[in-house]
């Protein structure tokens, strides 16, 4: 069968969603952000909520996320995305509001904002992209950088005595009563992409049902920061990141009710 006979509109099975703009992404080749953006756009498209979705982009590589998803966006100061999202959702409770944050933004400079937004159970989706490095500023140590991992500010590898421990912030937010769905996923294989999409879709559906804070960590790569190829980055991630940041749902429940916390 000739290829020309296959490439026909009636045989189309996969195409770029219209929620993604035609802008060429500024990300490096192989960057996980592109895949996560695409998944988000597909979920928004499939749920038919483009008009009801408001995104909050962070400071970091994904600062320009608003160029790629065709929805209304707010661009936050470094770490403050959960506070912006709080302001949006409290005054517009009918909207699907999400933050998109990297490890530096969410787990370092924005720790207070993410903890308290999750603890209040703000009805938002949090997409947390953890690639254990600061990509935009040139590959410095992140709060999630592994011990021994080489970065621009840990040129001999992260040392415990000097830099402290890598932060498992997702496990921390799972402890907070305001979160209902907390999961850790990845996007390095087709199967992983499908699972992440399912998780993000569930998170948005939960927000539609006012279930509180939905937290989706995506363990990701940064081939430029790690200074290896995209394919090698996926392998490095599987070997080094997954044992410390294990994939799967950490919490899947209703947010806590008041009785447990009431004064007598």
């Amino acid at each position: 069968m000739d290829i020309k006979d296959i490439i026909k509109p009636e045989n189309l099975v996969y195409d770029k969603t219209k929620v993604l703009t035609d802008n060429v992404m500024h990300y490096c080749p192989g960057c996980s952000h592109g895949v996560i953006h695409k998944i988000l756009a597909e979920v928004i498209d499939e749920m038919g909520i483009q008009e009801e979705t408001i995104g909050v982009s962070p400071v970091g590589c994904s600062v320009l996320a608003y160029n790629y998803l065709d929805i209304d966006w707010l661009e936050a100061a470094h770490g403050r995305a959960p506070a912006l999202a709080t302001g949006v959702v409290r005054l517009n409770p009918e909207k699907y509001v999400f933050t998109y944050q990297g490890d530096g933004d969410l787990a370092s400079i924005g720790t207070a904002e993410i903890m308290h937004a999750c603890n209040r159970g703000e009805n938002i989706v949090v997409i947390f992209v953890n690639n254990a490095i600061y990509g935009m500023t040139g590959g410095q140590m992140a709060p999630t950088t592994l011990v021994g991992q080489v970065t621009a500010t840990t040129p001999y590898g992260r040392e415990l005595d000097l830099h402290g421990y890598p932060l498992k912030i997702t496990e921390l937010v799972a402890q907070l009563p305001g979160t209902s769905f907390v999961t850790r996923q990845s996007v390095q294989t087709p199967a992983a992409v499908r699972k992440t999409k399912k998780a993000i879709k569930k998170a948005f559906a939960n927000v539609g049902q006012k279930k509180g804070t939905q937290f989706v960590e995506v363990v990701s790569t940064c081939s430029s920061g790690w200074k290896i190829s995209p394919v090698a980055s996926n392998k490095w991630m599987e070997t080094n990141m997954f044992p410390f940041y294990p994939l799967g749902d950490i919490k899947d429940s209703e947010k806590e009710t008041a009785d447990k916390f009431k004064v007598q």
């Binding site: 296959i6 490439i7 026909k8 045989n11 189309l12 099975v13 996969y14 195409d15 770029k16 969603t17 993604l20 060429v24 992404m25 990300y27 080749p29 192989g30 960057c31 996980s32 952000h33 592109g34 895949v35 695409k38 996007v187 390095q188 294989t189 087709p190 992409v193």
Partner: peptide, 10 residues
């Protein structure tokens, strides 16, 4: 898995 959404499949 394409990060740049540049593949269409038939």
């Amino acid at each position: 898995v394409c990060p740049d959404s540049c593949i269409t499949v038939y």
